[in-house]
Simulated scan of single mutants.
Amino acid sequence: MRRSAYPQPVLGYVGLTLFMVGDGVEQGWISPYLVDRGVSVTDAASLITVYGVTVVIAAWLSGVLVQTLGPVGS
């Protein structure tokens, strides 16, 4: 397997940055889209909140699992 020229933590930070940028961009267009489709503003905000909480929990669990089991392929 070919090794990257960048240290593994740097690649993790780049991946996290891209994920967070994508998450922010997504929230910027999904709310107006849902409201245009007839969803109330309150329901759209609740949906985005539930999504955000789910992402936080999943990110924490994935970190714990990687610390416990190690990254895949290593």
Rank of each mutant, 00 (worst) to 15 (best):
Tyr33Arg: 06
Met1Ile: 10
Gln27Glu: 11
Arg3Leu: 13
Gly52Cys: 03
Val25Trp: 15
Gly38Val: 13
Val35Leu: 02
Pro32Met: 08
Gly38Met: 08
Ser74Ile: 04
Leu11Ser: 07
Ala45Ser: 09
Arg37Glu: 12
Gly24Trp: 06
Ser74Tyr: 13
Tyr51Leu: 15
Gly63Cys: 05
Val21Ser: 03
Leu16Pro: 00
Tyr33Ala: 14
Val41Gly: 01
Ala45Ile: 08
Gly24Arg: 12
Gln8Lys: 07
Trp29Tyr: 15
Gln67Tyr: 09
Gly28Ala: 12
Asp23His: 05
Trp60Phe: 15
Gly28Arg: 08
Leu34Glu: 10
Val14His: 04
Ser74Lys: 14
Gly24Leu: 15
Gly28Met: 14
Asp43Ser: 12
Val41Arg: 10
Leu18Asn: 00
Val10Gly: 01
Ala58Gln: 02
Met1Asp: 04
Ala58Ser: 08
Leu18Tyr: 02
Phe19Ala: 15
Leu69Ala: 03
Pro71Gly: 07
Val50Thr: 06
Asp23Phe: 13
Thr54Arg: 06
Ser4Asp: 10
Gly12Ala: 10
Val55Cys: 02
Val50Met: 07
Gly12Leu: 12
Pro71Leu: 12
Thr68Ile: 08
Gly28Leu: 15
Ala58Trp: 07
Arg2Gly: 02
Gln8Ser: 12
Ile48Asn: 04
Tyr33Phe: 14
Tyr13Ile: 11
Thr17Glu: 02
Leu34His: 03
Ile48Ala: 09
Met1Pro: 11
Val39Leu: 05
Val21Gly: 01
Leu34Asn: 03
Val55Met: 10
Ser31His: 05
Asp36Cys: 00
Tyr51Ser: 12
Thr42Tyr: 04
Thr54Ile: 09
Ser31Asp: 03
Val66Met: 05
Met20Val: 14
Ser4Met: 04
Arg2Ser: 07
Arg37Pro: 00
Thr68His: 04
Glu26Cys: 02
Val10Ala: 14
Asp36Ile: 01
Leu65Val: 12
Gln27Ala: 15
Val41Ser: 10
Ser4Trp: 11
Val21Thr: 07
Val41Asp: 09
Glu26Met: 14
Gly12Phe: 03
Gly63Ala: 04
Val14Asn: 03
Ser40Pro: 09
Tyr13Arg: 03
Gly38Trp: 10
Gly22Val: 10
Ile57Pro: 00
Pro32Ile: 12
Glu26Ala: 14
Ser46Pro: 01
Thr68Pro: 00
Tyr6Lys: 09
Leu34Arg: 02
Ile30Gln: 04
Ser46Glu: 03
Val50His: 02
Ser62Leu: 14
Pro7Tyr: 10
Val50Ala: 13
Gln8Arg: 12
Thr68Cys: 00
Ser62Gly: 01
Val39Tyr: 10
Ala44Trp: 09
Val41His: 05
Gly12His: 07
Ser46Val: 10
Tyr51Pro: 00
Val66Cys: 03
Ala5Val: 11
Ala45Arg: 07
Ala59Tyr: 07
Phe19Val: 08
Thr68Asp: 01
Thr54Met: 11
Val21Cys: 07
Leu47Phe: 14
